[in-house]
Nucleic acid binder design. Structure first.
Lengths: 334, 334
DNA sequence: CTGAAAGCGCTTACAG
DNA sequence: CTGAAAGCGCTTACAG
């Protein structure tokens, strides 16, 4: 079937034309006689010729590859976030005849990514997670390579695509306030992640807009698994009406801890999450949360990167839609 | 920092040697005077020269890339299986100075993979899922490209790496039998997946070894979500002592369904899963299951592929270890 | 130990 | 509309 690899030279000779002409017929650049083109195209079709991506790349100094980083520590939760992103990215890449190449990055170790960049194996990269001071972002900025970041960071001049966490958190919180809830406890995630700050901001916006006294909200930063029990203990002993969890991983633990105490949600205390997941979906009671589309995030990031590579203009920041899902876990109980 | 790209020619000229010598100093192939080598290496270090992967690839007709397929339908469950595999693969690839390139594949649509192969963008590929009649496997076999398959299939001459599902299922089932359980209901997954057959085989081995009458085991094939309730209804109405679920997705639904009926696990009925997951881990009661290491699977698959690429000999089939985790959900109740 | 030269498989001014 | 030739940045016989 795939006997030997056939090259542009083979088809040129077989057809008694020059490689130049073959190349032009394929790429569509430059004029080629209609009949000549036909002959070439059909020969190619028939003999199943596909140009070598490497040779083409070398000649054009392009790789037709984009890189995507995979955080080494992703597995903190089974958030299928990265995988969905990846799916979206692959989809768009493939539509544009590009391939996607994975590079792992640690919190501080970006050596693999660095090599990829210097290797010139990619035309651009997508960063799937942003830290407050992100070494990967720093590396890419310096390198001059095109890149887009998923998530929000503080570095200037970086093209970003993100869920609108801030607006989403604000809306969810406002909904709860309108419903009569006033005393919140906010369980925050890793403060190294920029998203944590955005969520916090959204929450604070809502609280301030509603003129809720400061002392009514209690905020726990960098909540760790090992402190979970103590924190929940403290909360349920106070007059807190609703626990807001920054993500599904935290939320699951909070729920477990509450159940363990024999308390009922939402009767004894309400719970909501600033991030959705299937684990949350199958919980009883169903839990109020924010829902984002990670696949779409991947798609948009990839589209943006490709435009960037083609030197087309792109918005510096693209914020995506979200949904607020009000469920059982925050139902009014009286 | 990264001003302009420097090439092998630049360093050759700067050092007044030939490109040949530079190339040899870098690759270590061919003799080079010790002092010359030193000069070259230190110049390179200092000027931060990294050879172009494409040019190198073209010259050697190698890509230093391996491809890995990502099933488009992975999201059936949030099994982090693929992601863990990917992590293992990236780890080993990186140790060998190779990069990994993703290609999505559908159940029947392998056009993307096909393009990758004909493009010559990869030196080999890892298939992360095998169907009974796998078009991807078929495509790769024909292409002559090196590849290794994760999972078990029926096609001959394919190099495979897999969890030892059969042995694992047999051991788990035997354990339960020894414990006195005799009447099982087996909830099977998609019969297009080869793993389903292997699990079935393991189960049957155990049952036959124990000489349990055939009629004592009831097997439900291709269990679908929509039939779940009816099936569980039927089972709990019978004298079944234990429900064996082929994977965690099925198991979760079975557990939900049992709970919904107000029945207690393991008092009223026992439950076990032939596949582990974090979702199962956080269940109360803890559930008996098989535990496999997907990251290791990725690592071994990648190592095997790289050996294959280097024309080293590899075993046709590598089976990995597993653990049987006996938990609450199958505890003897009397 | 070291180099000149051809080659990997394409693209793209330049010329006609 | 079409070609000869140089070039992309490496490697590798071949010769010395």
């Amino acid at each position: 079937m795939d006997n030997k690899k056939i090259t542009i030279d083979d088809v040129a000779k077989a057809l008694n034309v020059s490689k130049t002409t073959v190349s032009r017929a394929i790429s569509g650049k430059g004029r080629v006689g209609a009949t000549t083109r036909e002959r070439i195209l059909s020969y190619i079709e028939e003999h199943n010729y596909v140009p070598s991506a490497m040779a083409k790349g070398l000649a054009q100094s392009t790789t037709y590859n984009i890189g995507i980083t995979m955080p080494e520590d992703f597995a903190l939760v089974d958030l299928p976030f990265f995988q969905k992103c990846l799916t979206g990215v692959c989809e768009k890449a493939s539509e544009n005849d590009m391939d996607v190449l994975i590079s792992t990055v640690g919190i501080t170790d970006v050596s693999r990514l660095e090599k990829l960049v210097k290797n010139r194996k990619v035309d651009g990269v997508i960063l799937t997670r942003t830290l407050t001071d992100d070494p990967a972002e720093e590396l890419l900025s310096r390198s001059g390579l095109k890149f887009v970041t998923i998530g929000t960071g503080k570095r200037n001049g970086v093209v970003r695509v993100d869920n609108d966490h801030e607006a989403a958190c604000e809306e969810l919180t406002s909904n709860l306030i309108k419903q009569g809830t006033k005393k919140f406890a906010l369980m925050c995630g890793n403060s190294l992640h920029v998203v944590t700050k955005n969520r916090m901001k959204g929450f604070i916006n809502a609280v301030e807009a509603a003129k809720i006294p400061n002392k009514d909200a209690v905020i726990f930063e960098d909540v760790l698994d090992k402190d979970m029990e103590a924190i929940v203990e403290k909360i349920v002993g106070s007059d807190t009406e609703c626990i807001l969890c920054m993500d599904d991983a935290i939320c699951i633990k909070v729920i477990d801890s509450i159940k363990k105490r024999g308390l009922k949600i939402p009767k004894d205390i309400k719970v909501a999450s600033f991030y959705n997941s299937t684990v949350l979906e199958r919980n009883t009671p169903s839990v109020t949360s924010l829902s984002f589309d990670a696949t779409e995030l991947g798609r948009v990031a990839c589209e943006t990167l490709i435009k960037l590579i083609k030197e087309e203009s792109v918005p510096t920041k693209t914020l995506l839609k979200y949904e607020v899902l009000m469920k059982e876990s925050t139902r009014k109980t009286k």
